[in-house]
Design a binder for these strands. Structure first.
Lengths: 113, 113
DNA sequence: TATTTATTTCCATATGTCTGGAAATATCGA
DNA sequence: TCGATATTTCCAGACATATGGAAATAAATA
């Protein structure tokens, strides 16, 4: 993962409503959720939520797809996985105990280190 | 990890110079690094770097300790580990394949799920 | 076509962040 | 005590972000 990709993903998640929306989308999985339902669920005005969703979208963390009058948002699993891998990467260069996570399929071994 | 802790940690890392400083501190490990050395290494003015270090510090990601004229900064491994766990948490509630990481010691099993 | 529903875009305001010059504080060595 | 070194704090300008009212766009339905 490129450093600028990581920065915009971290920045996108570093906001109360966006983090909440992202976590909700993660939980609902590939069914996704309409913009209006997200706004209602999180008690955020629709236009404000729309702005936040576009930030998450531009960071590549979610995608949108029109379905009739609604626009369905879904997470992009790969980007989240890459971000976790990116954050874990450094500590695994020499000091695995600092990160304490394992990333399957990262290399030949079954841990990130 | 509390949600506000996560937000400030994410926000602290979502900036070019801070992310670079943090990653450098992760790489040097518990030896840590002086504020001036960090500024020089990353080609950032000392006062600007000082501000960034205080943001990382307030987010709990690093700590400081005076050593003579220098102030040594070190990462706080637990907070990084907690943040990774926090981000991984949601996707592991039902959709482990989305997160693709394992957090040892998370529960009784050896993976986060 | 007109109406309702769903969402986005436009816009202005308020607030927060990034930056670096200059001054203040702290420590060491002479 | 003085000067040099290391770092922080203060400050102000430039820029970016968050918010929500109002209008615009898009789609379904009658």
């Amino acid at each position: 993962m490129e450093i600028n990709t990581a920065i915009s993903a971290l920045g996108a998640l570093a906001q109360e409503h966006r983090l909440a929306a992202f976590r909700l989308l993660v939980r609902v999985g590939e069914d996704g959720m309409a913009a209006g339902d997200l706004a209602r669920s999180l008690a955020v005005p629709h236009n404000t939520m729309s702005t936040h969703l576009s930030v998450l979208s531009q960071a590549g963390l979610i995608t949108s797809q029109r379905n009739g009058r609604s626009i369905i948002y879904r997470i992009v699993p790969d980007v989240m996985r890459d971000l976790l891998g990116f954050l874990a990467d450094d500590c695994c260069q020499g000091r695995p105990e600092l990160c304490g996570i394992a990333v399957p399929g990262k290399t030949s071994t079954s841990t990130c280190c």
